[in-house]
């Protein structure tokens, strides 16, 4: 089925490419468990495009963090982009905030059955050398150190995928493949991990974050991978004037950084999980944002990235809401 979808994608891109400035998609990388983003201008490279559960990267960020040196001229042709359900929500959020206009993008929507978390694979097959990885029906088949492992896909999906309510793109110009069934339809399922931590005593919550955030090396991968982290080079984590953070590696610095990272995304974060995926120290940083997402849903009934005409709740107000 994946192969059919891939062929369909190639065909659609082939048709569209002459009208596009560039096509952003995924291609295979040196790591069998992860793809790498690819930027295609040359039709010869279309055959390299791939899709499926290894395509974990959210490509929407590249639209606001352009890959090329030169800035894109106003009258340039649209950019083609592959998006999964969660990626499309980031795209909607960027459109809402006018970082990108809808007619500048040609959206290739890809229904998603979940992406693979290489760490979960490592937990199962050890960290030995994975030579190849393929998906056969609902199984991940891995050849590692001469042994073939067959693992249920469900067992190695990224944490964010398990509570996914929007596996299908919210907006698209074309849809590639069959519509997927949501894994979750309730806040309880989606925010299971948030609730689990919230149900612990406050001392344990503090201890949890102390032990997790202590590993942070302040590489800012979480920030740079986030499609909605649009301050980029003006980030408060690095500016010296005003100086909010020192270069020290103590817990206060790390707490404050992740705190602010999350607060800046309140009502904007679409839960794509990139921050957590890219963390080299395996810190569950998406969990922090999930809590704020939950607050936004419960307090203001708002879920980010669903309506291109909507306004993120912290960028607006309602005089009547006296109860908060």
């Amino acid at each position: 089925m994946l192969e059919t979808d891939r062929i369909q994608l190639h065909k659609l891109v082939e048709e569209a490419l002459p009208e596009l400035d560039m096509m952003i998609g995924w291609t295979e990388s040196c790591d069998p468990l992860q793809t790498t983003p690819v930027f295609i201008r040359d039709a010869k490279l279309i055959s390299k495009l791939t899709l499926g559960p290894f395509c974990s990267q959210n490509l929407a960020g590249y639209l606001v963090k352009p890959p090329a040196l030169e800035s894109v001229p106003k009258d340039a042709k649209p950019i083609g982009i592959c998006v999964k359900g969660c990626d499309s929500r980031s795209l909607v959020a960027l459109i809402q905030e006018k970082f990108i206009s809808r007619d500048r993008v040609r959206i290739f929507g890809i229904p998603c059955r979940g992406t693979i978390d290489w760490r979960k694979v490592a937990q199962r097959v050890g960290l030995s050398d994975v030579k190849s990885a393929t998906v056969e029906d609902d199984f991940l088949v891995i050849d590692a150190s001469g042994t073939t492992h067959r693992i249920g896909l469900e067992d190695v999906l990224a944490r964010k995928c398990l509570g996914c309510r929007y596996p299908n793109p919210i907006i698209q110009d074309v849809l590639v493949g069959q519509v997927a069934t949501p894994r979750s339809s309730s806040l309880e399922t989606t925010y299971r991990d948030v609730d689990a931590l919230d149900n612990k005593p406050i001392e344990e919550r503090l201890a949890f974050w102390q032990s997790e955030l202590d590993r942070c090396i302040r590489c800012y991968a979480c920030r740079n991978a986030c499609p909605l982290c649009v301050c980029q080079d003006k980030c408060i984590a690095e500016t010296r004037e005003p100086r909010w953070l020192t270069q020290r590696v103590g817990l206060p610095e790390k707490f404050l950084f992740h705190f602010i990272h999350a607060m800046h995304l309140a009502g904007r974060c679409t839960g794509c999980g990139e921050c957590e995926r890219v963390c080299p120290m395996d810190i569950p940083v998406t969990l922090i944002k999930e809590k704020l997402n939950k607050i936004m849903e419960e307090m203001l009934g708002y879920s980010a990235g669903l309506d291109p005409d909507g306004v993120p709740p912290l960028l607006t107000f309602n005089p009547g809401e006296t109860e908060i």
């Binding site: 090329a68 800012y220 991968a221 920030r223 080299p280």
Partner: peptide
């Protein structure tokens, strides 16, 4: 040769992981 570097590292996120590890 800008083209070479565009081709090689367009996907770079400009984070500090590679340098810190």
């Amino acid at each position: 040769q800008t083209d070479y570097w565009v081709q090689m590292v367009s996907q770079c996120l400009s984070c500090g992981v590679c340098t810190y590890v």
